[in-house]
């Protein structure tokens, strides 16, 4: 049977295209233009070629930021994914506690990002914050404003607190969609808890976990507000992630050329990862 092709439907896309042109394509073009020039303000530009790209790609500072970003993303994924699944497994599937658990889990996701950063900043202060004060009271020398290890600990703890709920909710939705017949069959076969998890729940969760993984990866790779409010990238540069470094170069130093080049490199990394993840997701769906 011949499939009918009606390309007139593309006309309906034109308004969206116009909107995207103004809020994405034109700014992107401007960034590309800035990335090959130098400016000292007053709307005057001087050709610089691809030197900013080379500077950024060869700079220790960029490598360090990218490394910190990779470590941060890998750390939170390694914690949030298994923790989210574990919490979802312990949540009730029926009864009045379901709603309570779901609301409690959703609460951190409803808090604005800058508020999360401010909350944890106060919470972890060594003198007046509950977390900082308690850790010092039990013998730890904790001060996230001075010690890089403590800053990383607080940063990761904050992200885990804020975003594990997303994994929990997605995993819970996946678990809820498994028919009872699977569990009944497993019971007849005498399967234990581990066997049920390994051979029934985990395979059935694979699609939602892929989505959760991708969402958390992309969000954490672009994270800015929470670490900026919590630590400002410090102490020193120890928690300066890529986005914070970019803003420092663009607004702090007003180096628009290097900042534009770094923006494009950052954008290309995210674009590549997005494509890889999209491909993985759609392949999984096809299989």
């Amino acid at each position: 049977m011949n499939k009918l092709q009606n390309n007139k439907a593309w006309l309906f896309v034109l308004p969206v295209f116009a909107l995207v042109a103004f809020n994405a394509i034109i700014p992107l073009m401007t960034v590309v233009n800035y990335s090959v020039q130098e400016t000292f303000g007053n709307n005057e530009f001087f050709w610089a070629g691809v030197i900013w790209f080379q500077d950024i790609l060869q700079s220790e500072r960029f490598h360090a930021s990218l490394g910190r970003q990779a470590i941060f993303t890998a750390s939170i994924l390694a914690i949030e994914m298994p923790l989210g699944v574990a919490i979802a497994l312990t949540m009730p599937r029926k009864g009045p506690w379901v709603s309570v658990c779901l609301v409690l889990m959703a609460l951190p996701l409803l808090i604005p990002w800058n508020v999360v950063g401010a909350m944890w900043n106060i919470f972890a202060l060594p003198d007046i914050g509950f977390l900082g004060h308690m850790l010092n009271a039990i013998g730890f020398d904790f001060n996230f404003t001075r010690q890089p290890g403590d800053a990383w600990f607080t940063l990761i703890l904050m992200d885990v607190w804020h975003w594990t709920s997303l994994v929990v909710l997605l995993a819970y939705a996946g678990l809820s969609s498994i028919p009872d017949a699977y569990y009944q069959a497993a019971k007849i076969d005498g399967a234990g808890s581990w066997a049920i998890f390994r051979y029934i729940q985990l395979p059935k969760l694979s699609r939602v976990l892929t989505i959760a993984f991708l969402l958390r990866f992309m969000d954490s790779f672009m994270i800015y507000t929470e670490p900026f409010v919590l630590t400002g990238g410090g102490p020193g540069n120890s928690t300066t992630l890529l986005s914070i470094d970019l803003v420092k170069i663009a607004l702090g130093q007003f180096d628009l050329g290097p900042a534009a080049a770094m923006s494009l490199i950052y954008f290309l990394i995210i674009l590549l990862l997005s494509w890889v993840f999209y491909t993985v997701m759609t392949r999984n769906e096809e299989q």
Binding site: M29, Y34, Q37, T39, F45
Partner: peptide
């Protein structure tokens, strides 16, 4: 369009 800081090489790229 001076604020967009166009150059011929970048214009050629987008073309």
């Amino acid at each position: 369009l001076s604020w967009m800081a166009w150059t011929w090489p970048t214009a050629a790229f987008f073309i």
